[in-house]
Amino acid sequence: MTEYKLVVVGAGGVGKSALTIQLIQNHFVDEYDPTIEDSYRKQVVIDGETCLLDILDTAGQEEYSAMRDQYMRTGEGFLCVFAINNTKSFEDIHHYREQIKRVKDSEDVPMVLVGNKCDLPSRTVDTKQAQDLARSYGIPFIETSAKTRQGVDDAFYTLVREIRKHKEKMSKDGKKKKKKSKTKCVIM
């Protein structure tokens, strides 16, 4: 069974824990209790493949930012979460993405942009803004509501699919490099 290491990042209060708990335990946590770091595991079937999701729910508070490099190193894919009623959390996505790329030393890291709290009427981040940002990053965008469960499975499952595509691409690139290195030079 394939294991996928997913990391949920975003500013404090955007609903990272609520999304994760909704996926794992099928219930909505409405009281806000700032996370330092929590880890969850769940076995699911995605596109006919049974897999184990190892999900790291991270601290959004700035005082825990020193811990970010460590979990970013171990993560295979990242859910970059903002709240649709919090423009600052949307603007912060850029910083999370840049930090992930720096730590992973790669421009090509599996990510999904997630606009959470889409059940709320007080939207300050337009869907088109988020779609445009995701398009500019070359990553999928999904709106979710941890409260109603809308888009929750889709967000995590899409990230797994992005990781699969990335692994497939990397193995193809690896095979191309191996083929090239088999060419021999004969000096007579």
Rank of each mutant, 00 (worst) to 15 (best):
D57M: 01
G10I: 01
D57K: 02
V7A: 10
Y32A: 05
T50Y: 08
A11L: 15
T35I: 00
I55L: 09
D30I: 09
Q22M: 05
F28Y: 11
Q61S: 15
K5C: 04
R41F: 06
D33M: 04
Q22G: 09
I46T: 08
G15D: 00
R41G: 07
G12E: 14
V8G: 03
V45P: 12
A59R: 03
I36F: 03
S39N: 10
V8P: 00
T50L: 09
S17A: 01
T20V: 09
E63D: 14
I36E: 00
E31A: 14
I21A: 11
L23W: 14
C51S: 10
A11S: 09
I24R: 03
G10Y: 00
G10H: 00
A18V: 07
I21G: 13
Q61I: 08
L23Y: 13
V9I: 13
L52R: 15
E37I: 03
G15M: 00
T35A: 00
L52D: 12
C51F: 12
S39D: 08
C51H: 12
D54S: 14
D33C: 04
T20E: 03
E37D: 07
E62M: 08
I36G: 01
E37G: 07
D38P: 00
V44H: 13
V9G: 06
Q22D: 14
L6N: 01
D33P: 01
G12V: 09
T2Q: 12
K5Q: 06
G48S: 09
T35E: 02
V7D: 02
E31W: 12
A18I: 06
L6S: 03
Q43F: 06
I24G: 07
I46V: 12
Q61D: 15
V8T: 06
G48I: 06
C51T: 09
E31G: 15
E49M: 07
E62F: 07
V29P: 15
E63L: 04
I55N: 07
A11P: 10
L56E: 04
T58S: 12
Y64C: 06
L19P: 00
R41I: 06
A59H: 03
T2F: 09
Y4R: 14
S39T: 03
L56A: 04
D38N: 03
A11V: 14
G12Y: 08
S17H: 01
I55F: 09
G10R: 00
G10T: 00
D30Y: 11
D30H: 11
H27S: 11
D47A: 09
E3W: 06
Q61K: 13
V14S: 12
K16H: 02
V45Q: 14
E49G: 09
L6I: 15
A18K: 08
V14H: 10
E62V: 07
I24L: 11
S17N: 01
A11W: 07
L56P: 01
E62I: 07
V29S: 13
L23E: 15
E62C: 08
Q43R: 14
V8R: 02
F28N: 03
V14P: 11
E49I: 05
V9E: 02
Q22P: 02
Q22H: 10
T58C: 06
I36P: 00
R41Y: 07
L56D: 03
Y4S: 13
P34D: 03
D33H: 04
I24H: 06
E31Q: 13
T50G: 10
Q43K: 15
F28L: 04
Y32V: 04
Y4G: 13
G13R: 08
A59S: 14
V14Y: 07
S17Q: 00
L23T: 15
V8L: 08
E3M: 14
K5W: 01
K42G: 12
R41H: 08
L52C: 15
G48Q: 11
G48K: 12
A18N: 15
T35C: 00
K5S: 07
E3I: 09
K5T: 04
D54E: 15
G10C: 06
G60E: 02
A11H: 09
D57S: 02
Q43E: 14
D30C: 13
I21E: 15
D33W: 03
A11E: 10
V29N: 13
S17F: 01
Q61E: 13
V44Q: 14
K16D: 00
V7M: 08
R41L: 06
I46A: 11
Q25N: 15
T2E: 15
L53S: 11
E62H: 09
Y40K: 01
G12K: 06
K5D: 07
E63Y: 06
K42Y: 07
C51M: 10
K5F: 03
G15V: 00
G12P: 12
K16T: 06
G10W: 00
Q43D: 12
L56K: 07
E31V: 14
G48V: 07
Y64K: 05
V8F: 03
T20A: 08
G13K: 09
I36K: 00
G15P: 00
E62A: 08
G48Y: 07
T2G: 15
I55M: 10
I21T: 15
I36Y: 04
E63N: 11
T35S: 03
Q22R: 11
L6P: 03
Q61W: 05
A11K: 05
D30T: 13
G60A: 03
V29Q: 13
T35D: 02
A59F: 02
Y32E: 05
I24P: 02
S39Q: 09
V7K: 10
Q43M: 10
V8K: 02
P34S: 07
G12F: 07
A59N: 06
I24W: 05
I46R: 10
T50A: 12
I55A: 14
S17V: 00
T50E: 12
Q22T: 07
S39C: 15
V29A: 13
D47G: 11
Q25E: 08
E63H: 08
Q25M: 07
G12M: 08
L53T: 14
V44E: 13
F28P: 03
Q43Y: 07
V45Y: 09
C51Q: 10
N26D: 13
I21H: 07
D54G: 09
S17G: 03
G12N: 07
F28E: 03
T20N: 07
Q22A: 07
L6G: 03
L53E: 08
G48A: 08
V44S: 13
I21Q: 14
L6A: 06
Q61V: 10
S17Y: 00
G48R: 10
E37P: 02
T20M: 05
A18T: 08
S17D: 00
Y4V: 10
D57W: 00
T2R: 14
Q61R: 10
H27R: 12
Y4K: 15
G15H: 00
D54Q: 15
P34L: 04
T20S: 09
I24T: 12
D47Q: 09
E3Q: 13
Q43P: 12
G13V: 10
G13W: 08
D57L: 02
V7H: 15
K5Y: 03
A59T: 08
A18G: 12
I55D: 02
Y32D: 04
P34T: 05
T58F: 01
L53A: 14
E31M: 11
G12Q: 14
A11N: 07
Q43L: 07
L56Q: 03
V14N: 10
N26H: 10
I36H: 02
Y40W: 15
I36A: 01
D57F: 02
V8D: 02
I55S: 10
F28Q: 04
T2P: 14
S39F: 08
L56H: 07
T58M: 02
V45M: 12
L53R: 03
N26Q: 10
Q25A: 07
I21L: 09
L19R: 00
I55V: 14
V14F: 08
R41N: 08
V45E: 14
H27W: 12
A59I: 01
D33I: 04
D33Y: 04
Q43N: 13
D30K: 13
K5R: 10
D38I: 01
K16A: 05
V44P: 11
V45C: 14
G10E: 00
G60L: 01
Y40H: 02
A11F: 14
E63M: 06
V14M: 11
N26K: 13
L23P: 02
V8N: 02
T20W: 01
Y4I: 11
G48D: 10
E3V: 11
Y4A: 10
V44R: 11
I55G: 04
P34R: 05
D57I: 02
G60S: 07
Y64D: 06
L56Y: 03
V7Y: 06
V44L: 14
D57Q: 00
F28I: 05
D33R: 04
L52H: 14
G60F: 01
N26P: 04
I36M: 04
I21F: 05
L52N: 14
D38K: 01
Q22F: 06
D47H: 10
E3A: 15
C51N: 11
K5L: 03
N26Y: 08
V9P: 02
R41M: 07
K5G: 06
G60N: 02
T20Y: 01
Q25Y: 07
Y40G: 01
C51I: 14
A59C: 06
V29I: 12
G15Q: 01
S17M: 02
I46S: 11
